[in-house]
Amino acid sequence: MGCVFVKQVKHTPGYEDPVVLASETAFTVSEVEVLYELFKKISHLIIKDGLIHKEEFQLALFKNSNRHNLFADRVFDLFDVKRNGVIEFGEFVRSLSVFHPNTQQEEKIRFVFRLYDLRSTGYIEKEELKEMVIALLSESDLCLSDDVVEIIVDQTFKLADSNDDGRIDPVEWKDFVKKNPSLLKNMTLPYLK
């Protein structure tokens, strides 16, 4: 009786077939395979378990694992679809697909809305926008008085909150982005193609 040796390729936990991922996303199979190499690299930066932890995401993004950043946290949380504190390969590919040059603008608009809807209420509220402006100022070492921050937030709401109910809903957001397309500038990564 002979023996057959099958070479098994060891994949990270949460690995999904590139053919399946390509069929569900904007990526080709070969692009998914390239993403797997990037995923493996990031997911082994600190804890070598093949999953991307927040510290590893921060390290890959900022070259610093301890750099707290509200927006990076939000991106991580949206990528972590299962809400288990780590990003698996499938989550990584499906989420990055939003940033693909071929992905519909509508999908990008919806993603940014969720990103800015900090408390997942279905609206972007003034307090949330103020919190994000303060976070951005702190990140940039810019110092503006609270009054000036209020003016910026109020002015933005005058432009975006067309029904003037004190919160921005998905329809208002879509209209606002259509008038200000530069708001989506981070949402397309040419590297992905």
């Binding site: 993004l61 910026i152 981070n186």
Partner: peptide, 26 residues
């Protein structure tokens, strides 16, 4: 405040935390 600063979302979009392009830099 300069008019360009009047759109808070423009300001926010400059955050490094939103620049995922850095993930692909070697």
């Amino acid at each position: 405040v300069r008019p360009a600063l009047m759109n808070a979302f423009e300001l926010i979009s400059t955050s490094q935390g939103l620049n995922l392009g850095t993930l692909f830099e070697k």
